[in-house]
Simulated assay, not measured.
Amino acid sequence: MVENKTEPGPDAKIQNEQVRSMEDVLKEYLPEESSFQETVLKAMNYSVLSGGKRIRPQMMEQAYRLFGGSGKEIEPFLAAIEMIHSYSLVHDDLPAMDNDTLRRGRPTTWTVYGEAMGILAGDGLLTYAFETCTKAFAMTEHPDRVGNAIRILAQKAGISGMVGGQTVDVELTGKPVSEEQLDFIYRLKTSALLEASLMIGAVLAGAEEEQVDRMEKVASDIGLAFQIQDDILDVTSTEEELGKPIGSDERNQKTTYVSLHGLSAAKAEVKRLSERAIKTLETLPGDSTFFRTFIRKLESRSH
Rank of each mutant, 00 (worst) to 15 (best):
V2C: 11
N4I: 15
K5H: 14
E7K: 10
K13C: 14
K13T: 15
Q15S: 11
N16F: 13
M22V: 10
K27N: 09
Y29T: 08
Y29R: 03
L30G: 06
E33P: 04
S35T: 14
F36W: 11
V40T: 10
V40Y: 02
L41D: 03
V48K: 02
L49R: 09
G52C: 09
R56G: 02
E61W: 12
R65N: 08
L66G: 02
F67L: 05
E73I: 09
I74L: 07
P76Y: 09
A80M: 04
I81Y: 02
S86R: 00
Y87Q: 01
A96T: 10
T101K: 12
T101M: 11
T108H: 10
Y113T: 05
E115C: 02
M117L: 13
I119R: 00
G122T: 03
T127C: 13
T127W: 05
E131G: 13
T132M: 03
T134I: 06
K135F: 00
P143G: 13
G147P: 04
A149R: 01
R151S: 09
L153G: 08
G158N: 11
G158Q: 12
G161V: 07
T167R: 00
E179N: 04
E180T: 15
Q181Y: 06
L182R: 05
S191T: 11
A192M: 07
E195S: 13
A196K: 05
A196S: 09
M199I: 03
A202H: 08
A202F: 11
A205N: 12
E208N: 11
Q211N: 13
Q211L: 14
Q211H: 15
V212T: 12
E216M: 11
K217H: 13
K217V: 14
S220W: 05
D221S: 09
D221M: 14
A225P: 05
I232M: 03
L233V: 08
D234E: 12
D234K: 02
T238E: 14
E241M: 11
K244R: 11
P245N: 00
D249S: 13
E250M: 07
Q253F: 10
Q253L: 12
K254S: 00
Y257Q: 03
A265S: 09
A268G: 01
E269T: 00
R272I: 03
I278Y: 04
I278F: 08
T280K: 07
T280A: 08
L281R: 09
F291N: 11
R292C: 14
T293I: 06
I295L: 12
H303R: 14
